[in-house]
Amino acid sequence: MPQDQRIAIPSPGFGLGLRPVHYPDFLARPQPVEWLEIISENYMVPGGRPMATLDRIRADYPIVMHGVSLSIGSDEPLDRTYLSALKALADRVDPLWISDHLCWTGINAHNSHDLLPLPYDAPTLQCVVDNIGRVQDYLGRRILIENPSSYVSFRASDRSEWDFLAEMAERADCLLLLDVNNIYVSARNHGFDPLDYLSGLPAGRIQQIHLAGHSDMGDYVIDTHDAAVCDAVWDLYARAIAMVGPVATMIERDDDIPPLAALLSELERARKLAQAALEPVGG
């Protein structure tokens, strides 16, 4: 792992992605999570139940905002309307931090609603670094950029995703959201060693970790967030914590969402693994 200083803030602990199906659980009684992550776009609506519920839950839990349509890698001007709605939501929520993905979601006013991968080359790096700078200036804070999962590699790429992320983070002076499942998924899809990926990132800029499940199609793996975290991803998580130190960790579940208790028990496994990974060797 490259020499680096700790820029990320100390970990606030373990969290979950807040999903509407679990609103009643969070409104009824305190739940054993230190913070919650919202999908920013779900609350970029004028009012009604989403905003009223968010305000109530925010009164009891710190919140982090996770976006899916900033499109930091689109080779066109940033969407000012989106940015202004994002800032308005941040003003209302006062989040611990704000994140989005190393990806593009659309171009020329057309939107894929998917986190599309980028070619990893110098012009794309310049585009992404410039855009992160603009967003950070506009929001008045560092943002976190998450490593994507992907199914294609562009012929134009001339470097690894982790080299791209490392240089991006240093040049843009941003933070990283490490999705351990995405590393696993992309490693399977593109045939690289997940440990090369982990050791290539600037540890001191990793402020959050995502854990999630995927669908194994045999020849390839799809990042579906509809299943429990698999053993290989747990192993990789333990390696990541051992390399990076304590990092805010959460389970991300977007489909086939189980009762909250099932996610809390997965989160308990993350707590125990992290604790074990951080114990001094031989101590």
Partner: peptide
């Protein structure tokens, strides 16, 4: 170049006819 790649790739996702395979690293497995 990036803009052109993105236009072509998105067209291939949104429509059945457009072709973006030339942009992608091919492989025997998938």
């Amino acid at each position: 170049a990036l803009y052109a790649i993105q236009q072509r790739f998105l067209a291939a996702i949104m429509g059945e006819d457009a072709d973006a395979e030339a942009l992608i690293v091919d492989d025997a497995r998938v």
